[in-house]
Design a protein around this nucleic acid. Sequence first.
DNA 1: TGCCAGGCGGGGT
DNA 2: ACCCCGCATGGC
Length: 314
Amino acid sequence: MELALCARGKFNNVNIDFEKTMSIYNLCFWLGDNYAYTYIPWSKSIVVARIYWSGEYEIYSEVCEKSLVEKLEWVLGVHEDLSEFYKLASEDPLLSNFVKVFRSWRLRSSDLWWALLVAICQQNASFKQGWRMLHELVRVYGKYVYIEENALLRPPTPLEVLSESEKLKIAGLGYRVKTVLRIAESLVNGFIKNEEITSLSAREAEYLLKRIKGIGSYTARLALVLSTRKYELPPVDKWLKRIVSVVYGISERDVEEFWVQKWRKWAGLAALAVTITLDAEVLSRAIMRVRRGILLPDLGVKPSPLNMRSFCEE
DNA sequence: TGCCAGGCGGGGT
DNA sequence: ACCCCGCATGGC
């Protein structure tokens, strides 16, 4: 699939750290030394943007439209007003350090399909195992786009996953394979649609996604956080539940209500920020770090949300 | 070697 | 509204 250069430019007067924004939770296939790639959700074509740490960008697509620049801005959260989140975070014992150093980080949105794959692979698995599954999934399918004569790996489409479903097992997804196939089927037959999920309220979208067997609250909410820029419903898993109960001295059963009350519409973003703060380390290590007050990412820890290059080195 | 890990659904009470 | 178990896989 050959993509043409549709737009190039530079983000000026934008207080965004493109290195952090582009590196966090991005697979090694898409990370360069001073730039990285991100796929842009669009129904008409596969679209990919190359973003340099300097703020320069190039957008590649089969079909060119002016609106692609706005779509890229949405993916990068260029116009997102996070002032309330920063204010809440600055008074928070878990995230006050984080928000000082990561003030100019933005969540990089993906399409619903990729967001669901990410969330499914986190089910009942460590950060490392989950992202290894995703890495393997992309590698095993071996689908590419071509830009300027360079081949760039891309995630398989739902149709490709359905027609080559045996590869999911090879990628090591285990019992998650059935759920992924149901999701692919739901996207192909229109039971769920990227644009519809984005336009619904978070509650309605969660309800719809949960009707697919294998998707529960955690998976639905993580996917919504990653694909809609709506953060009001936090994905609360065993990991966050335990950490929050330790830090704030509350019962695990009260964590979700507490977290939403604390963070309001930013609860999902805050949950993701905690994973970055603690390098998504396994629970016992994460708890140890909390007790020692090590509440900033450690570049020495790898792989971590901030440092996923090491998946390519294995 | 086992045991378990950022869930889930289906079975119980 | 709870509790409990099995589930595929790979890492420790």
